[in-house]
Design a binder for these strands. Sequence first.
DNA 1: CGGAATCCTCTTCGATACTG
DNA 2: CAGTATCGAAGAGGATTCCG
Lengths: 222, 222
Amino acid sequence: MSERKRHYHQFCSVARALDVVGERWSLLIIRELLLGPRRYSDLLARLKGITPNLLAKRLADMECHDLITKQQHSSIGSTHVYELSEVGRELEPVVLSLGRFGIRYMLSGPKDDDLMDIGWGLLVLKLRYQGQKSGTITLLLDGDADAVIQCYQVKFSPSYVDIRHGQHWASDVVVSLSVLDYRRLAFQGASLAELNAKNKIKVEGQQKKWLHFLVSFGFELE
Amino acid sequence: MSERKRHYHQFCSVARALDVVGERWSLLIIRELLLGPRRYSDLLARLKGITPNLLAKRLADMECHDLITKQQHSSIGSTHVYELSEVGRELEPVVLSLGRFGIRYMLSGPKDDDLMDIGWGLLVLKLRYQGQKSGTITLLLDGDADAVIQCYQVKFSPSYVDIRHGQHWASDVVVSLSVLDYRRLAFQGASLAELNAKNKIKVEGQQKKWLHFLVSFGFELE
DNA sequence: CGGAATCCTCTTCGATACTG
DNA sequence: CAGTATCGAAGAGGATTCCG
C-alpha cells in the first residue's frame, strides 16, 4: 500500500520525516489531533481551506504510515474518529518546535482574515511547563465568535502535559476566563495581577494548584 | 516585498511557522546551512532534485523573511555565500526534531536511489550531547562514493554543539573513520569495542576528550 | 448528516535549456 | 558560477454531487 508519492530520495532522517509529514496540511492535522480525537467533519471544519478530497487523502496517507488510526466510535451515533497513534504522538516535538519558532509572527496580532482557535493557543502550555508537580485543571474559555464556552482539560506532570478538548473529568481546579484574556496572558505578556484586578479570571477548587500551574507555566504574577 | 504566497490564514504559531518554512525544500535548505555557509551551486549540488529556479525562489523568500543572509565572500574568487541569520538559526530545533522523528525510517538502511551525505548523519550529534564539558573535535571521514576525505569540526559545550564542514581549526582531538563505520556507530547500534578491535578508528590528540565525547554522545563502549 | 468521490481551474514543481 | 526562461506534469483550491 506504499506510494507513488514525491519524496526527496535522501538517506537523511530529516528528509525522511519530511517525506512523511512535509506536505501541505499534514502537520496541521497532527496539531488538531494533539488536542484529542476528531471526526472527519470536525477536522474539515477546523482546517478551513482544506478541501474534502485533500483531507481524505492526507488522512489515508497518514493512516498508511501508522501516524493515526481510524477508530470506530460507538458512543455518539457517528461512525468513527481519527486519533493519533503511538508513532503519531511522537510528532508532538515537531509541532511544538514549529510553534515555538512561529510565536515571533504572532506578536503583531491576527490579520484580518485570520481564523482563530483557542485550542491552538493552548498548545504553548505544553512547552512552558517546568514544574515538578502533577495536577489536573479544567479550563472554561468563553467569548469566541460563537459565544460558546469551550472546555479543555489540562493534565500536567513533570514529564508530560496533556491537553484535551471537551473533557469534563474531575479536576483539581476549574478556571474560567475569556479567550481574549487568555491570549493577552499567553501571547501579549499581560500580567495576572492586571487581569485579577479586573476580576477577569474565576477560579474554583484548589487554588494552590492553580497558582502552581501559573507559576510553573511562566505566567507573570505581577 | 511581501508575497502573493499561499498561507494558511490561521492565527496560530504552528501555522505561521509553516507559512514561512512549510514549503517543499525550505527546511532542507536550512538543514544544509546548519553545517555552515554555502554557495548557490553548493546547495544546488547537495540538494539533488531541486531545480535552479526553485532554489533561487526559496533563497529569495527566505532572505525576505530574514532567515538567511547573502554575504559577499571576498576570500575565494566566488561572489557570495548564503548563511543562516540569527532568526534562521532558531530553526535548528525544528530541523532536529524532524530528524529525531525520522530516525525510525533510517533503520532499514538506504534505498537504492537514495543520496547519502555524511553531514546529514552528523546532525544527530546535536541531539545526543548530554555532557557538562566543552571541547573541539575534528572528524575526518573517508570512503564515500568519491573517496574524498571530508572534514568536519565539532565544537561541543553544555549549551550547544556546533558542527561545521570543512573547518581545520585547532582541536583537542582528531578522529578518523570511514563514513560507513560512522553510520554503523550512529544508526545501527554498532559498538565502539567492535570497531576498535578491528582498528577502524584512529584517534590523535587528547584521547580523554574523545572518550568523553563518545560517552556523552551516547555511543556504546561495549 | 458524516464521509467521501468528481470535475474543473489555478498554482506550484520538476526537467531541460539558456543567459549575464 | 549564479542564476532566468520555458513548458509540461503534478498538486492544491472550490464547488458540486454521491452514497449510507
